[in-house]
Design a protein around this nucleic acid. Structure first.
Lengths: 239, 239, 239, 239
DNA sequence: TATGAATGAGACTTCATTCAT
DNA sequence: AATGAATGAAGTCTCATTCAT
């Protein structure tokens, strides 16, 4: 009755959240109806997330989701337009926070007048991203799992986020270098190196494949990367 | 949009290539029939590869492939059992060469009696992987695109290869460290760092997203990574 | 034209009816939804039965059935798992009643202490089978039409029922003979004779091929079977 | 490219044999080419017969047949027009002999001037049918298996033969009664009784289901049919 | 609102038949 | 003549989406 195939980008005008808001909904926010609505949305999102991680976004059907969430199939459409909308809703908080973290850090870097101030922006973004990973580990894992897919269909949000992140991260690096925090190195290469390394390890950790001690990874990664990337005059003497 | 009756791992007994070979075929090898067969297989593989890159493996239908390849739908099944078999056939040469490269390099490392000999094994594997990237760029890109997906359905081969590569690479790193080529660092972390960084940049390059000069990337990456990873006594004085 | 992935006996665990019942359905029994469900199931069964009789089970497609029943193709699968399940559902009431008739008659025979009592069991089973034929003539015809087919695919239920019936009938005969109702004759031969004769005539009658007066057949058949065909003056004296 | 569905009756003009004879074939009858041709035809027929018995005519594909016969798929069509033609060819000798047996017996009956002569016609037909069963057991089994199917598609020949046999047998009975060989009984009922009984037992015997001693069956059957099943002490005096 | 039944497009796969080799 | 590759119609089954209850 309706076409299955979605074309990428159709959602350029939709709100960030991807959640469906009936134009007129009864009950005031916080009331009984609103609470029910939140609960249903959460049940659907949770079920979907678990299934997406298990089988990949494409392979999961609407019925899989509703049945796992314990709702009727038709109810899905009261909460989300379709699978892509759900994926967008899933990614929304993460995307918002990650993008905000970069934007703020970029702003700080631009405003920084000292190397110390510039360095602080790194600490800030690290903290912000750490918090995201901590509170939205599953969504981050889903992102890592799907972010290289072509921006088509329900997986589009993952890829689009990845592209935005890369772009902002590169700008961030450029600014950091201008502040003398990094060696004179092409920003694109060094940024992708850091992103690639961090994401790969994070993937293993969130995955359960990682054999080492996760809590030590950030420090190790920083040592590893920064010993290579750090500007000469910041290099610590070995030993 | 979804693959129907696939379960991961069902292909454990199939040959490496994934291609379908009638046990006895008429016409001698090199004859007309044989040539036709090769041409068809190639046409299907090429069409499939292009579509997979464009839309992702899951979103491409058999009919998309045959129609792009200019053959009848039913003909697909003379050459491949199903989409997963085609994907396996696509990955087979790359998987073979990559795995062989690691295995050989690992063997060399084990046999190495000097640091120079050990270092040579790195050059060898670099060359081998470079050759694979050069000759099978599209397949490598497909791998990068799909290799984090759960090992379900047609995309399974990508993920399975990724897991094997990670495992072998970690062993490789462990050996390299035993030969004093690398700093005393957890092998898992440093390996995933290198893989993650290299794959992320490669993805951008093969993708067309990369803005810099691709030919300079390997050198840059080595500098970047090795300046961080290199054992202290190999560290060159900055300047 | 051919059934695809069926293997005989796959349904050993399914319920007797073969009908698909969602575990929890909305609407109380007897409500609108329940009524609709019954109507649909009936429409599909009726359409299928008519087509099966016309063309044979194997030659009828799901689409033939749904289109004749006036429902969408996909709806079929809400009511039956596949064609074989529908066939099972079609046969279920007949199979149940026939088997029950035999079991009861066998039980009566076992308990019978007089020849009169034993004879009554014959009357009982005759009546029961007559009722089945009267109320489920078309299903019985379908049974007669398909019951010699190998127990493969959608036709399996017919053959399996036939085998059960033969077995029970033979036991029945054996008991009847022990009560002195029948000549000392191998039970298998005499049973198959009666079944074969009865089924063949029934087939003609239900078919419309039969030229005679159907209502007289049962009596004629009994006379014939019990007294034989020999013309009076050729009758050998009993030894 | 061509339609699959056959419509019943399309073969009304074809020759009895169903075998394909190229209008101009090289080699004289009995020569090398003719011998090869016979061998191939036999291989195909044998393979088909075995598969038909195992799975039913409808479920067997052309490729199943050729592959079991050890010939190429395309070769099938050099020997038979399609599956139905093969089935016709399979039944042809049996049909011919059975029909001839009835026709001859009917002719004899018509010419018979004594009851002894009339009785001899029964012996003749019994012998003829026995010979057919002996030499073409598998084909007879296939006939029994498929002869109640609607006369559609490849199974049509079985059903058509069944209808002819019934018709001729009824005429035969009518004549026999006129000669005083049988009781005054509706010919249709008594004929179908005999056919039904005989076929049912034969089916069990050829099938392998029969537990008794096959060689004794004909005699038992004759006794049974002619003398009836009634136990001696219940026998009503003939009125 | 919630439910799950209905719809029909469309994906996968098979197979009779034709045809180049 | 024999082979088996090619074709595409047709069949099975799934699933996103809509809609009556």
């Amino acid at each position: 009755m309706m076409d299955k195939g979605d074309s990428a980008g159709r959602r350029s005008t939709s709100s960030t959240s991807g959640a469906k808001r009936p134009s007129e909904r009864p009950g005031q926010p916080g009331g009984r109806r609103d609470t029910n609505r939140r609960e249903r949305t959460k049940a659907l999102s949770d079920a979907a997330l678990a299934l997406f991680l298990e089988r990949g976004i494409e392979a999961v059907t609407i019925e899989d989701i509703t049945s796992k969430a314990g709702v009727a199939k038709g109810s899905f459409y009261r909460y989300f337009d379709d699978k892509q909308a759900l994926v967008e809703a899933l990614f929304a908080p993460v995307a918002t926070q990650v993008i905000a973290a970069f934007d703020e850090s970029i702003a700080k870097l631009k405003a920084a007048r000292s190397r110390a101030a510039a360095f602080a922006s790194y600490e800030a973004i690290g903290e912000a991203l750490g918090a995201v990973i901590l509170h939205h580990g599953d969504v981050v894992l889903l992102y890592l799992q799907e972010c290289r897919a072509p921006a088509e269909g329900a997986r589009a949000p993952a890829r689009l986020l990845a592209d935005v992140v890369a772009e902002k991260a590169i700008e961030h690096t450029r600014l950091a270098r201008e502040h003398g925090l990094l060696r004179a190195f092409p920003a694109e290469v060094s940024t992708l190196t850091v992103i690639g390394a961090a994401e790969r390890i994070l993937f293993s950790v969130l995955n359960g494949d990682f054999k080492g001690e996760p809590l030590e990874v950030p420090g190790q990664l920083i040592t590893l990367i920064f010993d290579g990337l750090r500007a000469p005059d910041l290099r610590k003497p070995e030993g």
